[in-house]
């Protein structure tokens, strides 16, 4: 093994993984290029765009700026981990039904930001939804259909009429 490579223990989407990574890898590089989880997108790669958003211990963070070591011993959820045994996450279904994804590049990050929001706040206001995905840039949709989709998912999973 390369001397600059070390073993890191990650828990990704509920699975414990031990992988060898160069010591200066980011969590994003470990996910995409070591674990093959390419759902998490590499956009600006410097913290501006939100495409690499993943959920770490319940909070949305940017994988491109997270040294892989900061994820050790913590629960990492990527877009691949949103679906459960009963099928895709309500957010994913509602994004489909509402046409909330166009080119789709920002979608995995927005799904992660929105999933973390709904986990802590099952019936958010539209303003809370706007704030929760403020760090995820979408250049296609104009956001309106994304807000609609998150609202619909909230109603289905935990909202007042859900």
């Amino acid at each position: 093994m390369d001397p600059s490579t070390e073993i890191v223990r990650l828990v990704v989407n509920g699975q414990s993984r031990e992988v060898g990574v160069p010591t200066h890898f980011t969590l994003l590089e470990a996910l995409r290029y070591v674990l093959g989880l390419t759902g998490t997108k590499q956009g600006c790669d410097k913290g501006d765009c939100g495409a690499c958003t993943v959920i770490v211990d319940g909070e949305p963070v940017l994988a491109c700026l997270t040294p892989v070591w900061e994820a050790e011993g913590r629960e990492v959820t990527t877009v691949e981990g949103l679906a459960g045994p009963e099928g895709i996450h309500a957010l994913q279904d509602c994004f489909d039904l509402h046409g909330a994804a166009q080119c789709g590049f920002c979608t995995p990050g927005i799904l992660c930001s929105a999933a973390a929001l709904l986990a802590g706040n099952p019936s958010p206001t539209r303003e809370e939804i706007r704030e929760a995905i403020a760090g995820n840039l979408c250049r296609c949709t104009g956001y309106a259909k994304i807000y609609d989709a998150v609202e619909a998912a909230a109603l289905r999973t935990g909202g007042p009429q859900g």
Partner: peptide, 9 residues
């Protein structure tokens, strides 16, 4: 400061 993810970090 910045956006939500960056404030979480």
């Amino acid at each position: 400061v910045a956006g939500p993810q960056l404030r979480n970090m």
